[in-house]
Amino acid sequence: MAAPMFSARLLGTLKRPGGSDGDGLDLSDDGLRCPSTGETFPNIDGIPSLYMPSPGEGKDVTARVKSFYEEHPFPSYEGLEEFGELVNKGSHNPFAARLLEGIGYNKLVLECGCGTGQLTHFLQLNNNHVLGIDLSLSSLRLAVEHKLRNGLERSAFAQMNIFDLAVKDGAFDVVIAHGVLHHTFDARRAFGHIVRKVKPGGIVMVGLYNRYARVPTWLRSKAIGILGPRIDYVVRNRIRDARKAEIWVKDQYYNPHETWHSIDHVLHWFDQNGVEYLNCSPPILGSDGEDAASLFDRTRPGTPYQRVVTQLSWLASIAREGALFDVVGRRREGPVV
């Protein structure tokens, strides 16, 4: 069941970091190679790497976040997860199951900030091809290890910088950044980079910490040193593996950099980047998003008042699990300005 590092469809989306869309890549013996420049990109410890550090501005944030996730690969596998178990877990997770259903079949998907790659692996069901990128090699090592052990042919991984993505513009049907942009030095700019990678008419989904619902996590972060990790709902109820619990606590309470965002922030980003709003998860209360059959159905974003009420209500729901909300949009036809 030996699986190649990249399926042909995914290989076709790659380009030289910093290069133009003409600088495609080929597989070489121990990594990737750009035929037009002759440059080689050897794997690092078996992990494809197309990472180019951010120059100047934001460099220290990126470096701190990178070294944090090198030390704490997130979300990590619980013990020895077989692919079948991962699929069962994903199918029983309403968010993951709805996401997969929304994506549909035979799609090319880019997951920015894939961490240890569970979602990447799950989304390659339905004959989708999914590229997971992250800056943490230690996270990617677990992702690639799972891929190779289970012979998964349509998920692939590479180390990349979200501000200098080594993939071609407009190459993907769906681009996802679930819980990632808020760890970059400028989430708005990072969004601008990832949205270019969606083809016109394609889907972009961003998951961010909510500025209202994240407050209790912030309060807990002040107390967790004294009261211990059991004050966290996820540690108490969701996680069975000790190492995984430790990593969750580090990610949530000791992260070197995080920013908080509202639905309206994202709507603004959408406007600036030629993206049409489709839906929000959890849905905006009182909007038709509440009854949408699919996460990717086109719905109205409600009024500013409805959005504030919705986000306040999240204090009683998603706040206990990290306060991550996702907004889904569709890139309008035509080039990004």
Binding site: M1, F83, G84, N88, N150
Partner: peptide, 16 residues
Amino acid sequence: ERMQRLLNLKIKYREG
């Protein structure tokens, strides 16, 4: 020889 494992783990997603 690989069919039993293949079917359980990559098609039925059930116990090996």
